[in-house]
Design a protein around this nucleic acid. Sequence first.
DNA 1: ATCGTTCTTGACTGATCGGTCATCTATCTG
DNA 2: CAGATAGATGACCGATCAGTCAAGAACGAT
Lengths: 125, 125
Amino acid sequence: MGRNRTFDEDDVVAQSAAIFLRQGYEGTSIDDLLAATGLHRGSLYKAFASKRGLFLATLRRTSADAATGRDDAAVDLLLVALLELAPRDPEVRALCGGALAHLTHAEAAALVGQRLLTRAHLSDQ
Amino acid sequence: MGRNRTFDEDDVVAQSAAIFLRQGYEGTSIDDLLAATGLHRGSLYKAFASKRGLFLATLRRTSADAATGRDDAAVDLLLVALLELAPRDPEVRALCGGALAHLTHAEAAALVGQRLLTRAHLSDQ
DNA sequence: ATCGTTCTTGACTGATCGGTCATCTATCTG
DNA sequence: CAGATAGATGACCGATCAGTCAAGAACGAT
């Protein structure tokens, strides 16, 4: 019953993740996300409720891959979450913690630290 | 000649650093900085030219201490610079690189990674 | 065909953003 | 004292922010 969605939610989440991991959370505007996804304002808010809601969806989608060490994009999104949201947002913090749960503290620190330097163009590794 | 300054520039830089390292760069508004420093808008722009100019001043002031491992605040500001500015701002990138210059890549990664996790309340170390 | 429901579309809102600038005040020089 | 200079103050600017909502369109059920 009711009209069908004209977009694929997985695609929208993937396209949004690409923007968030590059520009950061505060550095990304709703208009940036609308441009990247092709969605209209009302549709985005209907599907994800808020900017934070969409970010949480991207984080849930990628957090499982972050600790494998083979998905730079997933780690980049985790960096954004750790620095900008996690200190003040328990739900984001819990997702970040889950993503790194089966690593030791030292392994987790090395993973995110190395990726932070590479993302800043201070290391090519 | 001319009127004397009524504020201490070092104090203003220190107070601004405290805001930036907690809230991030994009998460900090000029009004936040005015409230924290007691400055008026015109004075801040006269002394530091822009939000970025003030951030650069805070980064220059603290970057020397970041690599000692004894100044969490300095590392936190470095984290903000690395994640939010360094990828797009060569001057910030150079300051970050200088701050970590006498560390190995692995040491630098461990330092910033460990601090990122602690700041996110995912590690008490 | 009509009704209820869901999604689409984009105009609109009040708030906030970084930054500018005219005016005023304090201080120096002569 | 008058004039020049530099800082102080805060009103103001256009742009952009996240979020809302009324109207219309597509669907299933009856």
